[in-house]
């Protein structure tokens, strides 16, 4: 925790100059209870020296099976403006969900995603890394009154595939990338917690995601992301429509 506070302080003090080649996207905890339950969310996400947005959608295709799709788009750069980066990740997952009583839902998803991280440094020199990520995610979501809580554990298999690197990006970026190339693929866990307020069908969710891999910093893997999102339970609208009819 102390290290994260330090990282935040570093950003606030304007010393930002690191490059990151992976960041955990939000571990979503869709509160699925029955067939056709649908949740979408749009949120802002931030991490050490970058920020961006996320889209999420989940849909219960049957009374057990569900689909999930996520997209994350992050951008960042040094405070002096000499370098800037952009990272994207899109993924899809298939899973099983289990309602546990009135208030709780749990589920297990298996998914695959692809992403890339593009950096442009001083002088226009660039690096671009493409990766695939396979994951299994278990989550629990509790909804009581105006509050929602969720937690999830995700096991990732992160595989860097191709990369185009202009060597002139210099250090420490080159060393990080060479280390990534040497050590890829990575197997590591992530934990996410979220807390939301609202009422059906709209919620405001705050979340925090942490990954555990050592030495993450040496490899340019961001250890955490945090953010806020608006969650819409879309099924509420079409069910309401159906009731009207």
């Amino acid at each position: 925790m102390f290290r994260w506070i330090l990282l935040w302080l570093t950003v606030l003090m304007g010393g930002a100059c690191s490059s990151y080649y992976y960041a955990p996207n939000t571990l979503h905890t869709p509160h699925l209870k029955e067939r056709h339950d649908t949740q979408v969310s749009l949120g802002g996400l931030t991490g050490p020296e970058f920020s961006g947005f996320e889209l999420h959608g989940s849909y219960a295709v049957s009374h057990r099976w569900a689909l999930m799709a996520n997209y994350m788009d992050l951008a960042g750069g040094s405070t002096s403006g000499e370098s800037r980066g952009r990272g994207r990740l899109g993924e899809g997952a298939l899973g099983l969900y289990f309602p546990l009583g009135e208030e709780t839902s749990t589920g297990l998803f298996l998914g695959w995603g692809a992403g890339n991280v593009l950096y442009q440094h001083e002088g226009g020199v660039r690096s671009r890394l493409n990766f695939h990520r396979y994951f299994g995610q278990y989550y629990v979501s509790v909804e009581r009154g105006a509050f929602r809580l969720g937690t999830a554990l995700r096991l990732n298999y992160l595989q860097y595939r191709k990369g185009w690197i202009d060597y002139r990006i210099g250090e420490p970026h080159v060393s990080k990338i060479e280390l990534i190339e040497e050590r890829s693929p990575f197997l590591f866990p992530e934990i996410g917690v979220s807390a939301g307020v609202g009422s059906r069908p709209i919620w405001v969710n705050f979340f925090f995601n942490v990954m555990e891999y050592q030495p993450a910093e040496e490899l340019g893997l961001a250890e955490y992301t945090a953010g806020v999102s608006m969650v819409f339970q879309m099924d509420y609208f079409w069910r309401a429509e159906k009731l009207k009819k």
Binding site: W112, L129, Y160, R161, K162, G163, W164, I165, P185
Partner: peptide, 24 residues
């Protein structure tokens, strides 16, 4: 079918090393 697809998927993912091209 789902289980089989998932297994094939994981197998396909295994042991692929990163292959980066460096330009100078």
């Amino acid at each position: 079918g789902l289980l089989l697809s998932a297994s094939l998927f994981v197998l396909a993912a295994c042991n692929q090393k990163a292959d980066f091209d460096y330009y100078y």
